[in-house]
């Protein structure tokens, strides 16, 4: 590149095509895997391609940065890229939160034969009345729904039935109430404490780095990674508890559906964030970042704050109001 031009336009690269190939193989493999009788082989090959390409790609970007050919303007492009990537992630969660709102506030009453929101008009729609009279007679909407419409109808026809397409959970992940001892024994609260603390520790690490205290930075960042892993451990505990003791599974109607999809995708994002922070930690330990130039870490930290914010939403909406 010439000296008068400050923006770095990289040379041709084989990485994008390799990444696209990896994604294509992964997508094809995932589809053939979920179809009955399918195997995971192709998907795993795709994942392997993807993982190695990502490793090479980011190594290259890090190398370009340490060589000093990344101008401030290019760095700002990376910053903008991260902003809007996080925004797109946010919209992914908006989709699931919106669905939870819809099934909880509107669909439940409609299945029950009632008008969902009586602000304008208290009369139930024809569809809701048909639900209550023809499709799901006897179904009583409540949140969290312990019985599913399918269960009610099947049991009405045959009180001894044990097989259902959707069997509600024995118990939901509800708020235990305000008593101190019960709150202390409530796992989601500890999850919240762990994740909020980790947001604090990553913030301290960030400040330490900005002040040039590399050692403190690495220490607090390491602590953040550990807290992230601890959170995932607690989450796994909770899932085991749900499956084994509460009978709460993916198949247990809309409650299990929304609960596991929301917390599960959050958990997946915590995993991704932990990996990002771990990479930042390893790079920090190698001495990669300095007071002003540390976007690799900063991006991971933003992502971490983002998963934290999502968790606060989950905690309030799925657990406390659940």
């Amino acid at each position: 590149m010439s000296s008068e031009n400050s923006y770095y336009v990289p040379e041709q690269s084989k990485l994008p095509l390799a990444a696209a190939t990896g994604m294509g193989v992964m997508a094809y493999g995932a589809a053939s895997w979920v179809i009955e009788g399918g195997t995971s082989t192709i998907f795993l090959i795709g994942t392997l391609i993807m993982a190695s390409v990502m490793f090479m790609w980011w190594s290259l970007v890090i190398k370009e940065n340490t060589q000093g050919i990344v101008s401030d303007q290019l760095k700002h492009s990376y910053v903008l890229g991260m902003y809007w990537f996080i925004f797109s992630e946010l919209m992914f969660f908006v989709c699931f939160f919106g669905s939870l709102f819809y099934v909880r506030v509107l669909v439940g009453p409609w299945l029950d034969g009632e008008a969902a929101i009586g602000w304008f008009d208290d009369t139930a729609t024809d569809a809701a009345i048909a639900n209550a009279t023809h499709l799901w007679p006897g179904y009583d909407a409540a949140w969290p729904p312990i019985v599913t419409p399918d269960q009610v109808v099947t049991l009405a026809a045959n009180p001894d039935a044990t097989e259902f397409q959707f069997k509600g959970p024995k118990e939901a992940m509800s708020f235990p109430g305000w008593s101190f001892s019960e709150l202390m024994a409530w796992l989601p609260l500890w999850n919240t404490v762990v994740l909020l603390t980790s947001s604090g520790t990553v913030h301290i690490a960030h400040h330490a780095l900005k002040e040039g205290d590399r050692k403190k930075f690495v220490r607090w960042l390491g602590l953040t990674v550990l807290l992230g892993i601890f959170f995932l451990f607690l989450q796994a505990e909770e899932y085991i508890h749900a499956y084994q003791e509460l009978g709460l599974t993916l198949e247990s109607g809309i409650y299990g559906t929304t609960f596991f999809l929301l917390t599960g995708f959050h958990g997946a994002h915590v995993t991704l964030g932990t990996i990002m922070l771990l990479i930042a930690f390893l790079r920090g330990a190698k001495g990669h970042f300095n007071e002003t130039d540390h976007f690799g870490f900063e991006a991971a930290a933003w992502y971490w704050h983002f998963v934290d914010v999502i968790w606060v939403g989950l905690f309030l909406i799925v657990y406390v109001l659940g």
Partner: peptide, 12 residues
């Protein structure tokens, strides 16, 4: 086995 779009499980 989820029921986002299945009223039998409480979805829609």
């Amino acid at each position: 086995g989820t029921s986002f779009f299945d009223a039998a499980g409480g979805g829609d």
